[in-house]
């Protein structure tokens, strides 16, 4: 987990889309929103889940690893940047390899775009646009100590399981205290048990 990072608490998200609108104002991808707001059980529940780039640390940035053009750079502060416009060939490897479903692609422009933690702001100590406007604190930007000072007793997790693999991330999610020793399930459905297809 990075020092100052985003903490996501889906339990607080009310699906208001303020983050989606604010994200469009980010200077590095003006007019295009990079945050995803999904309604996992639409029609049955008001639950909503905001998804920003998780800035994977181990394995470090799978999107960058599968990139055939070396277009995705990870800066020393652990931020996985969006594709270098000079290098990106628009192959969509990153889009389909990302375990969190984050990168977007413009096939006409042959260019990948993704959340870069509002690098134009965070590099200067400002909070990302989404965390700045979130009315409920579902997206919090700061250090873990700052989060815990504001919300006593809150626990976070920064590892996620996908099948047998665990991905450790720079962005963390709020979890109940009894779940903190477990990686958060990444959602990869079980397709096989003892060699039997159970889909």
């Amino acid at each position: 987990m990075m020092g100052r990072t985003i903490f996501i608490d889906p339990g607080r998200c009310i699906g208001c889309q303020a983050c989606v609108s604010a994200c469009r104002e980010c200077d590095s991808h003006r007019g295009k929103s990079m945050i995803h707001l999904d309604y996992p059980d639409e029609g049955h529940s008001v639950a909503s889940l905001p998804t920003v780039c998780m800035h994977c640390e181990d394995p470090v940035a799978p999107c960058a690893e599968v990139c055939p053009a070396d277009a995705i750079l990870v800066t020393a502060d652990g931020v996985v940047q969006q594709a270098d416009t000079t290098r990106c060939i628009g192959c969509a490897n990153c889009v389909n390899a990302c375990p969190f479903g984050v990168p977007k692609i413009d096939l006409q422009a042959k260019l990948q775009m993704k959340c870069n933690l509002c690098y134009d702001r965070t590099a200067y100590g400002l909070a990302p646009m989404c965390a700045t406007v979130c009315p409920t604190g579902a997206l919090f930007y700061g250090t873990l100590e700052e989060l815990q000072a504001e919300r006593p007793g809150v626990q976070v997790a920064d590892s996620f399981t996908f099948g047998g693999s665990t991905v450790t991330t720079g962005v963390a999610m709020v979890v109940p205290a009894d779940k903190v020793q477990w990686p958060v399930p990444g959602g990869l459905p079980v397709v096989e048990i003892n060699g039997k297809d159970v889909r």
């Binding site: 995803h36 999904d38 996992p40 889940l49 375990p99 969190f100 479903g101 958060v184 959602g187 459905p189």
Partner: peptide
């Protein structure tokens, strides 16, 4: 991927 992760959460 995102929706399944939301459901798992």
């Amino acid at each position: 991927k995102r929706v399944l992760r939301g459901n798992a959460y």
